[in-house]
Design a protein around this nucleic acid. Sequence first.
DNA 1: ATGAAAAGAGAAAACGATTTATCTCTTGTT
DNA 2: AACAAGAGATAAATCGTTTTCTCTTTTCAT
Lengths: 347, 347
Amino acid sequence: MVTIKMVAERCGLSVGAVSKALNHQPGISPEKAAWVRQVAAEMRYHPNAAARTLKTSRSKNIGIIFENRLIHEFFSEVLEAVRACLTEKNYDMTFLNSRESQGMSYYEHAMQLQCDGVMVVHGRTRGALEELMNSDIPLVTIDHILYGHTAVVSDNADSFRKIIPYLVQMGHRRIAMVHGEDGDVTRLRVAGFHNACRECGLEIPEEYVLEARYHEPKDSGLATRKLLALKEPPTCILYPDDISILGGTTEIERQGLSVPEDICCFGYDGNRLSRLLRPSLATYRQNTERMGRVAAEELIQAIEDTKCYIPRIITVEGAVQPGDSVRQWDRGGKSGEEKQDHELSKE
Amino acid sequence: MVTIKMVAERCGLSVGAVSKALNHQPGISPEKAAWVRQVAAEMRYHPNAAARTLKTSRSKNIGIIFENRLIHEFFSEVLEAVRACLTEKNYDMTFLNSRESQGMSYYEHAMQLQCDGVMVVHGRTRGALEELMNSDIPLVTIDHILYGHTAVVSDNADSFRKIIPYLVQMGHRRIAMVHGEDGDVTRLRVAGFHNACRECGLEIPEEYVLEARYHEPKDSGLATRKLLALKEPPTCILYPDDISILGGTTEIERQGLSVPEDICCFGYDGNRLSRLLRPSLATYRQNTERMGRVAAEELIQAIEDTKCYIPRIITVEGAVQPGDSVRQWDRGGKSGEEKQDHELSKE
DNA sequence: ATGAAAAGAGAAAACGATTTATCTCTTGTT
DNA sequence: AACAAGAGATAAATCGTTTTCTCTTTTCAT
């Protein structure tokens, strides 16, 4: 490997002088500095990362916490955007693992690598992050809020302010929600759902809100079965994500009903998948690209301007993505009398 | 951060002695060594990665080349398996990017970080890898063969020795193939397809083999349209992957036909998705978990036993995953006379 | 022309580990 | 009892940078 020493020899200068030239620091004449940089480039010199890190204790490396098993499309997309942005700014990305076998925590791993910052794309447990939280390593989380640190979140609660009016406009008034397992995100969504329904003047019976798990179509199928068994089943069901919606539609069809003729379904996430399926999925499309990019930019700012940086919570809005799984309900439906029910409950 | 010096002071020993103790090296009595290690553990000492790397020029870090935009499920799964394995063996993973802006190649990036090895999960262009290929950094590729280096590949050619007999057994004889864009993998698959067909005594007309692109349902849809327009359309169509199959089925339904009643479809990859869709996809399921694990193990061996390591090509077999998109054809089909055609072409 | 100030370059210390060479102190042998 | 050998520990060099401190040279004002 070509070292700074070699460059120095080639230039007939001291290592110190070359270092100053390469780092645009005073102590060397501008013309000579430029010339040195050119020589270095020609020699394809790149500073040894380990040496630089050792000396400066800044690594230009971001630790990534991503316990999610890389397979979740939403998080994969976010991570990809993070990567694109970090690459642009010349930061590297290394996965952090809390090697419980080694008795090493996330924090310790980050310290060992001297990460300049840490991005939590999807952490396993809150506990494992505690140590990091209380350290002074810049930290940005995605879709997860840690007190005192910047978080980039999707508009979990507010999304329903778009979803519910959309469904109401499509003629639905009996809307059920199958949601994921308990957690920050889920709580926000459920509250957002109730809120939005109230704002639209909908009365949602308790048994319309059921728990399933994210990305477990079977669970959603089960919940769906319960909903269909009600005396007054919903006309439209919201699912926790686009994969879960498949479990729902499967169950619906198993009952001899069909989507969207008998029941409409609405997803969450807006995977690429959702546009390819037949019927195409109506869903709430999250802006993963933007989330990743914003998170990365924010983290870099926190790193490079630590003094002035103020942590904040940034919401990235998504948008309703219409699809065939939700049809216009009031027109041509088989539900003349049901509409009356709606009029009643509207009041 | 706690350094080796602190540990040394705490133990009343020299840094050198402590280093030997921690690295299980001779020059210190075994009992004292054990005691030192215990003290170090209590102090939560972890050697500074940069310092160690600088001195030893071994980083315990693997460079990952993954240009695929993390969103391809097949590669995501493989990468996840790689990660699990590397974590187990206490290696870190850093993404390598050929920062063209910085005028830095993969090789240079790997050198700068002093990566112990490089894993190519999905490289963009062959050219960008050339420099790496000719270096002496251990290198393992996945589903891509670089001369002189270990490659872990799926059984691209041989898979058809299972797929075709399966389809034949299901009663199909007019089988078409929509394949991906040209490349190592595609060539193997196409050849494997022809081979397997010959072995099963099938005559495949030229116009039954069409090019599309991987993960571009629209392209596959187009190819499907051409196939359906033939005087003698196939009874079963193979697609380059599970996403593409969606483009195919969409087109088929657009023509007023249905899957699998009128046309059967067979995918490739075996995503989680394939089991959730309705109708469920018949596909060739790749063993991504095994591919990733084997690749990681192989790379570590190449690193830790460089002297003795012999590069090789390792094939990981997949398996036919039956599904509703392929039905038994000869029984109850609407194709009495077609069957005769088959008898003819068989001869 | 002289001195002070400023600028450019070099020498050397430091970062935190590993590793080699050196030293000291047992221990065993004659 | 004296010496050799070997074990156990220390001291010091080193990896490739950055950075501080020092030194030399130039420049400019008096």
